[in-house]
Design a protein around this nucleic acid. Sequence first.
DNA 1: TAAATAGTGTCTGTAAGACAGTATCGA
DNA 2: TCGATACTGTCTTACAGACACTATTTA
Lengths: 242, 242
Amino acid sequence: MDDESWSPPQVLVAVDLVILTLRAGVLQVLMVERGIEPYRGALALPGGFLYDEREDLLGAARRELREEADLEPERLHLEQFGAYGAPDRDPRGRVVSVAYLAIAPGLPEPVAGGDAAGASWRPVQEVASGRSCLAFDHRQVLTDGLELARSKLERSSLATTFCGETFTIAELQRVYEAVWETSLDPRNFYRKVQGASGFVVPAESEPRPTKGRPARLFRAGPSTVLYPAITRPDTAEQEDGA
Amino acid sequence: MDDESWSPPQVLVAVDLVILTLRAGVLQVLMVERGIEPYRGALALPGGFLYDEREDLLGAARRELREEADLEPERLHLEQFGAYGAPDRDPRGRVVSVAYLAIAPGLPEPVAGGDAAGASWRPVQEVASGRSCLAFDHRQVLTDGLELARSKLERSSLATTFCGETFTIAELQRVYEAVWETSLDPRNFYRKVQGASGFVVPAESEPRPTKGRPARLFRAGPSTVLYPAITRPDTAEQEDGA
DNA sequence: TAAATAGTGTCTGTAAGACAGTATCGA
DNA sequence: TCGATACTGTCTTACAGACACTATTTA
């Protein structure tokens, strides 16, 4: 290992982004269509190489968020969740990719303009499950990012970052239902959200156009950690053999 | 970004290992004393650069485990938990380090022999908390790895990997107490461990030398996920301002 | 009025924490 | 026998899930 003539291999470092949002009640992920080889024409997560020697990983993630997704990094949740470095994951050579999870409030327009030309929101279910062809190991990256988002919904106030400035409890519930792919009892959900101190605080503002009784509006509260947690329903508890 | 003349920076990739074990009832981490600059003489986590173009990250972690810690990777829990890539984290140049958490059963001897010459077990509390000088950003890496271990004890059967082939409930409790830096009620702990289906299974074998009534022996059960979880006592729930 | 959505209350089972009590060993 | 450790049981409170009910809007 400390061989005099040995020197460690040079590697390219990239960041990849799993950017989630809720549009029309379904969980969507931002994907770009690759214009160049390898995987030309396939879907890929937004991302790219480190720009220069001085850029740090989070900085690169923020830059890609702006360039490829046309999103303001300052307002978004952005969190690292893994490094992917299989030697053959990129046919061009050795690339280690660090993955970040970003959450954006539902945006009315599909991303447009600037460098984000090829980017579009896609339903997560469609992209993650089987059929479509994803570049590199991005299916695995997506799956891991999704699982992080799902588990963080339980014990952190992450869910509010899917919503706008103010939101109703029912809207918040739709976030949980979309990310978890479940349905929840609105009455129990209401009780639990109210019971988690500091999760949401009332926001007095004009009611929304609606059928039925207008809902109260809330905004994100001071807590980042939820206690008690909003627990995810059993999705068939797993066991595996020794 | 797609400037023709631009090319991404070459980076060195390393793996760093947080290797935890329990010795004499205290949580210890394997540290090496650096023999070369930078940070000569300081304590560092075991680790090193990727060996060649074909080695993958987990492979590198396994190799370092063998070389630097003289441990058999096959028998240990080994899990990635983060990538560290601040531009100035290594004065020699740009290095991105991928961190792994490893758990070893208590080993009677301090590590010796082979490349592991400079390695020694140190109490985590002493290393992580303040005083001693750690190389690079290894204090942060250690802290993050520790927090992963602590949280995984709650919902996974990780704790049994700190123990030998067979163990008593009291020994398992000492694992939780050491990692969490708490004390637990033995009676409630007993009930919870038994209640978590598949966590431990009885092992019939000769009782141990002991004062008092000899304890039953168990071995790790088939479950990797704990239900119900073994919950960590409140360590002052945190809130932070918006 | 009805239809629709919002919000409250109540009941039941399970799990957590506190702690009393019984069992089985060595000396 | 006593001291020590192992193990069992019981009580109280908190939370999860199920679901009945009341409230407030539009049509």
